[in-house]
């Protein structure tokens, strides 16, 4: 069984972001880089699937500059068997369609029976790549899974819906799944496995070889949202206060929607 996991390296979200000159993306200098949180669940689920079926080969694929190799090594240390870096210094500027197109170009005719991605990246957050990839490959896909079981090439998964309700979906492979937080507990890459990951294959493919899809959108500007002003102070009659607050909550938050 061949399994593909698509992973993105993102900045630590606790970072203090600065805008890049030209303000089309954040400045990538002085950031600590991590595996996209959602993708950790994707890697873990792939490794669990391999453990379940006994023999499987997991490819971890990531698109970006040289620095993504370190995060790919983490995936290898968690149990992926080989890595494919699509070398691309301007991956940050590519839209979901272009990214999915690159992955599809690589994955087509590689005979993957199961593909895992995070449900979205923490930095761009479009949540499209997994589904687009599946559509391009002609595979079924299920998004936002929080539970995964496999039996004889059939997958029974649970999608997370609003309010903690889950939808149970059955699908036959080959298929693409986009992973939600809480799907499993991603393992730590143990120290011996970190050392062993050094010896695993990590192939680099120039993006030019795989880039066939034209983008359909472009970033015109990136900026910081307006800061909160001073807090509003409400005083007066209790029932009127309650009405005022409800009105504010409806306008400013999504909690009463």
């Amino acid at each position: 069984m061949k399994i593909l996991v698509c992973m993105k390296q993102v900045p630590d979200m606790e970072s203090k972001f600065k805008l890049s000159p030209g303000a089309l993306w954040y400045d990538t200098a002085d950031l600590a880089w991590r595996m996209n949180e959602y993708d950790e669940y994707a890697v873990e689920q792939a490794v669990r699937l391999k453990e379940q079926v006994g023999t499987a080969d997991i490819t971890i694929l990531s698109i970006g500059p040289d620095r993504i190799k370190e995060t790919m090594k983490k995936a290898l240390a968690m149990g992926c068997d080989r890595g494919v870096q699509v070398a691309d210094d301007v991956a940050w500027a590519k839209d979901p369609l272009a990214i999915a197109g690159i992955i599809a170009e690589y994955a087509r005719s590689k005979d993957f029976s199961c593909i895992f991605t995070g449900m979205q990246s923490q930095d761009r957050g479009s949540g499209q790549v997994g589904v687009l990839l599946a559509e391009m490959l002609g595979f079924p896909s299920v998004t936002t899974i929080v539970d995964f079981t496999h039996e004889n090439g059939e997958y029974l998964v649970k999608r997370e819906l609003e309010g903690g309700v889950k939808a149970i979906v059955k699908v036959k492979g080959p298929a693409v799944f986009t992973c939600q937080l809480g799907l499993n507990s991603p393992r730590y890459p143990t120290l011996p496995n970190i050392m062993k990951a050094k010896k695993k294959e990590l192939l680099t493919i120039p993006v030019e070889q795989l880039q066939k899809t034209a983008p359909q959108q472009e970033t015109t500007r990136i900026f910081f949202p307006e800061k909160k002003g001073g807090g509003l102070i409400l005083e007066g009659d209790i029932p009127a206060l309650a009405d005022q607050l409800i009105k504010i909550l409806k306008e400013k938050t999504s909690v009463l929607a």
Partner: peptide, 9 residues
């Protein structure tokens, strides 16, 4: 890279 991964872990 290994030392960085060990620190992160």
């Amino acid at each position: 890279e290994e030392q960085n991964l060990i620190r992160d872990m």
